[in-house]
């Protein structure tokens, strides 16, 4: 027996799919980042700074962060749905998580384009 409180067509499918697509984007970035980081013999400040001053690296890192934001939102929301049963507390925590994630994305832009 299924009891749905929130009804609507394909409820949850978009988030489910988004979590998987963002996972693939982050996986590709991760492999690329490890290869780029390890291809430098010693990680000095000029090497590190020049790496993150390149346009493609900034855009790729921002794409990674945007993917992470959506991915983490779905994941954390799943955890809250499983363990926090009180609706009011869950909603409060969800809002807190959303605000935190939005702040992280803003901070990332600030870090990359300072």
């Amino acid at each position: 027996m299924t009891q749905r409180i929130v009804t609507g067509a394909h409820y949850g499918l978009r988030d489910w799919l988004a979590q998987r697509i963002t996972a693939v984007i982050m996986a590709v970035y991760s492999v690329m980042a490890v290869v780029v980081f390890l291809s430098n013999k010693s990680m000095t400040y000029p090497v590190w700074r020049d790496l993150f001053s390149q346009g493609w690296m900034r855009v790729a890192t921002l794409l990674f962060m945007a993917s992470l934001a959506w991915h983490a939102w779905v994941g954390v929301r799943d955890i809250l749905m499983d363990y926090v049963k009180a609706a009011g507390l869950r909603l409060a925590l969800e809002v807190l998580v959303l605000l935190t994630i939005a702040a992280y994305v803003g901070w990332t832009i600030q870090i990359l384009w300072r």
């Binding site: 992470l68 983490a72 994941g75 935190t100 901070w107 870090i111």
Partner: peptide
């Protein structure tokens, strides 16, 4: 969950 909590530190 651990990675999400640690994200602020890594950033």
């Amino acid at each position: 969950a651990l990675l999400f909590v640690a994200l602020v530190w890594l950033l």
